[in-house]
């Protein structure tokens, strides 16, 4: 193995990969959540559909999206690598374990939370991304230009209380994942400082609450008001 692969598969390297991809995914989430707010524009979906078109055609955004897909895959693979290492490090468990007292549930449950989020992601992609790219989708015309009508797909999906319920619950798990993940990413990168760490932790908590809430508002809004 070269120094490079050795580094990335070392215990610290595994964490590094999680941190880098994780923090990148958080920036994506911020953009995604704010962009999706256009669902609430009350304009019959025009803003949302225009935005969707831009996001799927702009060369820059397309490039970023490939990095995004790679990040998700790397984040998942390295999570598996990391978890395998960590499980193997304690072959025999304690008979009586109260370690919950010394760390948060989220920090101990990142793999579980991540798995749930991954399942959510697959369903989410299937409902929207797959349909938009490969499925049958209606068309709308604004100002003489034809657009794929993702808005209707979204509204139809969210009109289903089960789907919206699943969506909202998944966001709760995302919240916990972010609550540990944001701060943890900085810690892994070595960015721990008396002055800045409290700020990072606060920002992390805000992100962990605001992003899932913004995501969850959309289906709930559609379900109740659209």
């Amino acid at each position: 193995m070269s120094w490079f692969t050795k580094t990335l598969t070392s215990s610290i390297g595994r964490k590094l990969m999680m941190a880098l991809t994780g923090l990148f995914l958080i920036t994506f989430l911020i953009i995604h959540a704010s962009g999706n707010l256009q669902l609430l524009a009350n304009d019959g979906g025009k803003a949302f559909n225009l935005y969707t078109k831009f996001m799927t055609t702009s060369p820059i955004i397309k490039t970023v999206s490939y990095i995004l897909y790679t990040s998700i895959i790397v984040h998942v693979i390295w999570a598996i690598l990391l978890t395998r290492l960590n499980v193997s490090a304690r072959p025999q468990k304690y008979e009586y374990d109260k370690l919950g007292q010394s760390s948060t549930w989220a920090s101990r449950s990142m793999m579980l939370l991540g798995t749930i989020i991954l399942i959510f992601l697959v369903i989410h992609m299937k409902t929207f991304w797959f349909v938009y790219k490969f499925g049958e989708i209606g068309m709308v015309t604004y100002d003489g230009v034809e657009y794929k009508d993702l808005y209707t797909v979204v509204v139809n999906a969210f009109k289903n209380p089960l789907y919206t319920g699943f969506y909202v619950v998944s966001m709760v798990f995302l919240a916990f994942h972010l609550a540990h993940g944001f701060w943890s990413g900085f810690q892994t990168l070595g960015l721990n400082h008396k002055k800045y760490t409290p700020l990072i932790k606060t920002v992390g908590l805000i992100i962990a609450i605001v992003i899932p809430v913004v995501f969850a508002i959309q289906p709930v809004y559609v379900l109740l008001f659209a």
Partner: peptide
């Protein structure tokens, strides 16, 4: 040994 996941325990 395992790797750190920053639980702080």
């Amino acid at each position: 040994f395992g790797a750190c996941t920053n639980t702080g325990a």
